[in-house]
Amino acid sequence: MLTRRNLLQAGAALGVGTVMKPTSSAQALKIQMSSGEVMKTKGLVDIDEKLPTNPASSAKRYRPTSRMGLGGLAAGNGFNTISSDEEILTMLNAAWDSGIRYFDTAPFYGLSLSERRFGDLLRNKDREDYVLSSKVGRILTPSAEPLPKRWHWANHSPFHYSYDYTAAGTRRSVEDSLQRIGVSSLDIVFIHDLSPQNSDFGADWLKYYDEAVNGAMPELTKMREEGIIKAWGFGINSPHAIYKAVEVADPDICLLALQYSILEHEEALDKTFPLLDERDISVVVGAPLNGGYLAGRNRFNYSSLIPDPMKQKFAAIQDVATKHGIDIKTAALQFAEAPATVSAIIPGARTSQQVHENVAAMKVKIPDAFWDELKSKKLIAQNAPTKA
């Protein structure tokens, strides 16, 4: 059994484990990291603690073994930040060496760039040793013209995209992803960005939804029955498609981005999760750090516009975290992973240091009193699950 001293020594070995001094709310609001900085993990880190996993097969539907995964948006030069192939491969190797065995990517991330870079790691691994998910809904075609500036891919691959939620388009998209990544199979396929929040769709999103009802949804069910994939669902930034689709289709798992974080979680807890629980559908939490905001970035949910209420809530939670010797990022990652509905969280990373800090955050013992204080101050919902 590790003592407090050994825990601190273990944390020091990782470059983490320092106990913070209390700061004021005003100081907490000033926490903002540049693109090259990383928020350090604070608290007692047990380096012998394993990353959380799902039980072997208590659920009827497929769930990834690992509850701690890696999101692939940054590997596609997301947020217009350029990383080299070598930098991303170093990060991916750090994730693998840290015990991460669930990897999520998409054709849209850098217009194939993320999938290709993930393949640089995964094609050299035993296919049974990891879980891999990608997405369908966009078909890529060669084009040397850059995308409009409204999309946040720096130096993306020379492709454009068109939407295709038909059965044929879905099967082609899966086959294209396998070739780009260089692997024999996907475990999970998410129908991507089928949402009114998709700026390409707006009010027309139901037209694409209807196409998916008759195309992508039954085709993915067929591919699951054929054994080509193990599970399918939706990868979306709002729950609209899920609310409709559970009545007409049979998804297994859904990637909910921007919908369950320590800052925003009430709708998911009160409406989305209960609906999914009735059908044994699990959730992969995307963007558990609100697009980097909870790791100190000047960016909230993929935007530089940060709502004042979120700034105030960030500062208040950071104050409580500091009081209890931890940091807000650690609290946010463990909060997102806690619900039974959740089968995995997939924070993104661009550097190996970000990976190490995120992994360390999952190995910090957070005091019960921290969660109690957040609830007493109404900073998180009273029914929000937390782990002792």
Results as ranks from 00 to 15, higher is better:
Thr3His: 10
Arg4Gly: 10
Arg5His: 12
Leu8Asp: 05
Leu8His: 09
Gly11Thr: 08
Gly11Asn: 06
Ala13Pro: 10
Gly15Asn: 10
Val19Ser: 14
Met20Ile: 09
Lys30Thr: 14
Met33Pro: 00
Ser35His: 14
Glu49Ser: 15
Lys50Leu: 13
Thr53Arg: 14
Thr53Asn: 13
Thr53Asp: 12
Ala59Gln: 13
Tyr62Gly: 09
Ser66Tyr: 03
Arg67Trp: 10
Gly76Phe: 11
Asn80Thr: 07
Asn80Pro: 07
Ile82Arg: 14
Ser83Asp: 03
Ile88Glu: 01
Leu89Ala: 11
Gly99Leu: 09
Ile100Thr: 07
Leu113Ala: 03
Glu115Ile: 08
Asp126Phe: 02
Glu128Gln: 12
Glu128Met: 06
Leu132Asp: 02
Ser134Asn: 13
Lys135Asp: 08
Thr141Ala: 14
Pro142Gly: 06
Ala144Met: 06
Ala154Asn: 08
Pro158Cys: 04
Pro158His: 07
Ser177Tyr: 01
Gly182Cys: 08
Gly182Val: 02
Leu194Trp: 03
Ser195Gly: 08
Pro196Lys: 06
Asp204Gly: 07
Tyr209Arg: 08
Tyr209Trp: 09
Glu219Lys: 06
Met223Leu: 15
Met223Ala: 12
Glu225Leu: 15
Lys230Arg: 15
Trp232Gly: 06
Gly235His: 01
Ile236Asn: 13
Ile236Ser: 07
Asn237Gln: 08
Lys244Trp: 07
Ala245Ile: 03
Ala268Asp: 00
Ala268Trp: 01
Asp270Leu: 11
Thr272Val: 15
Leu276Asn: 10
Glu278Ile: 01
Arg279His: 13
Arg279Glu: 00
Ile281Pro: 02
Val285Gly: 04
Ala287Met: 08
Pro288Phe: 03
Gly291Arg: 07
Gly291Val: 03
Ala295Cys: 13
Asn301Thr: 04
Ser304Glu: 14
Pro309Arg: 08
Ile317His: 02
Gln318Tyr: 00
Ala321Ile: 00
Thr322Cys: 13
Lys323Trp: 05
Leu333Cys: 07
Gln334Phe: 04
Pro339Tyr: 04
Ser352Asp: 14
Val355Pro: 02
Asn358Gly: 05
Ala361Met: 04
Ala361Arg: 11
Ala361Ile: 00
Met362Ala: 00
Leu374Trp: 00
Ser376Phe: 03
Leu379Tyr: 04
Ile380Thr: 02
Ala381His: 11
Asn383Phe: 01
Asn383Gln: 15
Lys387Val: 06
